[in-house]
């Protein structure tokens, strides 16, 4: 389930609590709560559990938990770390049997040589369809500059922040 779905269900749940307090409700019709419809791809979700504190130069373990929506087949996962992060344990790929009920857990060991913001690019494939994930790793003491450097945006803010303007290729004749 996506975060959006969870939000939707949470909202429904809150409505339910209100309903509990009142034995009878008016015949009031409410618009349905908005949900998120996501792009096609494998029915796979990822939850990551990070170390409380990640230190440069030391081994760290991030626990990736995959949940699939399939009754069988194989879940293939590849991890590509961003520059500055190395994986340990000799594996950047792993397969899981989706006929096993429950979640699929992968403890990924890594090390970053310097403080900074890094990412694990995680590519899952199930039943012939992919799904991409990104896991952010904050190693050491993170500054705004580290964050900005790791996730660059283009252009400059103008018009009191109302516009992000990028330079065009211009030909003047």
């Amino acid at each position: 389930m996506t975060m959006f779905s969870k939000l939707a269900l949470s909202s429904v749940f809150l409505l339910g609590l209100v309903a509990c307090a009142a034995p009878s409700k008016e015949a009031e019709l409410n618009p349905k709560i908005s949900v998120a419809t996501v792009k096609p791809g494998a029915s796979v979700t990822l939850n990551s559990v990070l170390p409380k504190r990640m230190v440069a130069g030391e081994f760290q373990t991030v626990q990736l938990t995959f949940k699939d929506g399939y009754a069988g087949g194989t879940l293939e996962v590849d991890i590509e770390p961003s520059a500055g992060v190395r994986l340990f344990g000799g594996q950047s790929s792993k397969s899981f049997d989706m006929s096993d009920s429950g979640s699929h857990v992968w403890d990924v060991d890594f090390v970053a040589d310097a403080d900074g913001v890094y990412f694990l690019n995680v590519f899952a494939s199930a039943n012939g369809l992919p799904r991409s994930f990104s896991v952010r790793l904050n190693v050491g003491t993170i500054t705004q500059k580290m964050s900005d450097d790791a996730m660059k945006v283009d252009g400059e803010m103008t018009d009191d922040g109302a516009m992000r303007v990028m330079e065009a290729q211009e030909t003047i004749r």
Binding site: M157, M163, R164, M166, Q169, T171, R173
Partner: peptide, 29 residues
């Protein structure tokens, strides 16, 4: 840009003087 308070994207050319004859400015993103 949802990471900048929903700022509207735009492109722009350079600040240049308008010549005395008709001028063409083509912009490519």
């Amino acid at each position: 840009d949802n990471t900048s308070s929903d700022a509207l994207y735009a492109i722009q050319g350079t600040l240049s003087e308008v010549s005395r004859v008709n001028q063409t400015r083509d912009l490519n993103a």
